[in-house]
Design a protein around this nucleic acid. Sequence first.
DNA 1: TCCCGAAAACTAATATAATTAGTCTTGAAA
DNA 2: TTTCAAGACTAATTATATTAGTTTTCGGGA
Lengths: 187, 187
Amino acid sequence: MSPYPVQTDRETIIETARAMIERDGVESLSLGKLASELGIKAPSLYRHIASKNAMLQAVIEQTYMNLFHAYDDALENASDNPQDQITKLSQAHRSFAHENPNTYTLAYTAQHPELRTNPDTLLERALSIQQIITKISGQENSLPALRGLLALVHGYIMLELNEQLQRGGDLSATFDAVIHAYLRGWQ
Amino acid sequence: MSPYPVQTDRETIIETARAMIERDGVESLSLGKLASELGIKAPSLYRHIASKNAMLQAVIEQTYMNLFHAYDDALENASDNPQDQITKLSQAHRSFAHENPNTYTLAYTAQHPELRTNPDTLLERALSIQQIITKISGQENSLPALRGLLALVHGYIMLELNEQLQRGGDLSATFDAVIHAYLRGWQ
DNA sequence: TCCCGAAAACTAATATAATTAGTCTTGAAA
DNA sequence: TTTCAAGACTAATTATATTAGTTTTCGGGA
């Protein structure tokens, strides 16, 4: 299977890159530093990845997978009350973003089209959350209500991460209150 | 005032950079291309700007100024009904982002702390919007309600710009409906 | 056991970018 | 007319992504 003194493989590269981005920010990640952390030289990376952008794309995809895993954990700890499920999912999303601010931001603000994640990956998750929302908003409003929820959760997090909510107050409690108000508006 | 055959000045540099970013994206803006568009060589830019980051920071600040100008225009065309005022402001914000997607995204996702805009610049605007919100949510909830509104508007726009709302439907109408539901939740 | 091919590493080289150092030019003011 | 400072220029440095071409060594077949 593996010839030579194999130093690394694609999976290790992606995970190392992910960790380095999370630690130091995307801006400061170069293929040289990444290779060095892996004990190889930069050009050797091209045996495993097509380009730096392709590598970033893989990091973004992995980040979504990790986020979805956090969703799963959250749903396991939720009651069968839809309001509670949405709250738990939203909190899980926010916690994930706070634990992984740099990769989260990377995943959600990928400029280059080349870096965008396949929508189908996201669709399946969206549908299952939409089913929960339907119980609150009704069938006819479930897509708008879902879109607004995602916008609210993501927007709140981005404002926090960009330090644009600096006027004090308990930001966790405010988050919960805002979600609650939003859901009430659709009932 | 101006010695030599002056080719450019700071204001022209910033505005040209802003236009180029809007046209081609931040990623593809180099000081070389910028200088070339201005008819000079890259090192000459350093007579007017301290660094590329300082220049980006100025572009971001200008973008906020332009956004605030759009707010002013919107309020002139609004009735004295707070619900109407918030709707008009939100629509103006969204329109601005759609007309200036690249600079809008740059302004709102500046990674480097070096690029962050002075919070005081934003505070004055936030306060005047908060006054309007107070009439809907009441005094005690006005800060959370304001934060949620900004999150909702910004988050919705970012999802649109990142092409994460691809399942059809009238996105403008949905935006209005989502804002409306949110405000109802705080009444 | 030996050899050989392919995977995966390496070195060298190229192109693009940001930035710094040092020099030249010229318009305005003395 | 002389001077000087602002603003331009060229040359050089450092990083970085990427490509080309070369070397190494293991595992499987002769």
